[in-house]
Amino acid sequence: MPEGHSVHRIARQFALHFVGHRVAVSSPQGRFAAGASELDGREMTDARAVGKQLFLEFDHSTWLCVHLGLYGAWDFAGDITADATVASANGRMGQTNQRGTILDEDAAEDSIASIGAPRRTRLRMAEQEKLEAPIESFPPEPIGAVRVRLLTDDAVADLRGPTKCVVQSPEEVEATLAKLGPDPLVDDPAEGEARFLSVVRKKPTPIGLLLMDQNVVSGIGNVYRAELLFRARLDPHIPGKDLPEETIRALWRDWTHLLEVGVKTGQMLTMDDLDPEAYRKALAHRDDRHWVYHRAGLPCRICGTNILMEEMGGRKLYWCPKDQG
């Protein structure tokens, strides 16, 4: 499932190529025909991500709300701008099973807006990001079961397999947002930290579950959970209410840092202070990118103890029993 950095990058792609444009909306698959009819012909006026959810506003009055879930993906095509890290990858990027990329020395742009001229191509954005072959005609024919197609004069976005895809009023969007925990890239930093602290310190729930609870904090998934806990040297089973205040604040600040890195690089890069060669390896391969995630049975990078894997909250949790014991 895409974690917060991926959805923020998708929102930025919409902001760059769709906001300010009138959009033809259709449902090639047919399952979203009524919603598509309601949005068709309107101008997209905003694109924002909060945690794992995407909100696209039309005519300042109606929103398309999308949660990709486990299988959802957006395919962009046309005169779109690809992120430098995607353009140099020639393969999957962004999250769990990606092959990654090796950047040129001067290819460390901060965002999709900083790369050069757009190219008429196809880009998939989901759990991984994949730059595909250039398209021969525009718009390309829909591929597969496309729930929603958003089309402008120059760009098209096709949505497949989402868990959630609904039209909402501003009031309904506010109700949805009210249920979500703070997002470091959306909330005021101090207010977000205070909200996170207030909730965690009251909960008897293990911190390893709280970090995955989107009502507590937005955007953290299985990879970031494991890495945040290791970076803090925290036992995943400690109840939130038993954590010192400064530890909780430090978790929020570290999540802010890692989310910013993820949006910038397109990678869930959780190891800091890497030398240039190690940085290139980390961007290229997941095995060189994380402290504990997906390393069950392998020695801890710090102490050499074998990394454990257990089920927590229905997902695999990786942790070091010595450094986090």
Rank of each mutant, 00 (worst) to 15 (best):
C300Q: 05
P28I: 08
D188C: 13
R231K: 09
I238P: 01
H257G: 06
R315Y: 07
R289I: 06
E132T: 06
D272W: 10
A36L: 01
E109L: 13
R149D: 00
P276M: 02
D254N: 14
A226S: 13
A113W: 07
F55Q: 02
T270R: 11
G313V: 05
R31T: 13
A77F: 12
P134F: 08
V146Q: 01
T101E: 10
A34Y: 12
G94S: 03
A296L: 12
A15M: 13
M212P: 03
M309C: 15
E193A: 08
V263G: 05
V217Y: 03
P182C: 04
E193H: 05
P139N: 09
R295G: 04
Q168R: 13
V166N: 05
G304A: 04
N90F: 12
E3Q: 06
S88M: 15
V86I: 11
E38A: 15
G181N: 06
H67I: 08
P118K: 08
P321H: 03
L197G: 06
P184M: 00
Y279I: 00
S37N: 07
A232R: 04
A15V: 09
C65E: 04
K52P: 03
C165Q: 06
I112T: 03
A190F: 05
K203R: 15
T121I: 15
A133K: 15
D110V: 11
R92T: 11
R147T: 14
D287E: 14
F14N: 05
I143L: 15
S218R: 02
P239Y: 03
H17Q: 13
R231W: 06
D110A: 15
E193N: 03
R225V: 03
G208V: 05
L308S: 14
R92S: 12
G4F: 08
G262A: 07
T101L: 06
S137D: 10
P134C: 08
L150G: 01
V199Q: 07
P206T: 11
L308F: 13
R42W: 05
C320H: 04
V292I: 08
Y224E: 00
E136M: 07
R301I: 10
A73P: 00
A77Q: 12
W74N: 02
K264A: 09
S169F: 07
W291Y: 11
G35L: 11
G4Q: 10
L258M: 11
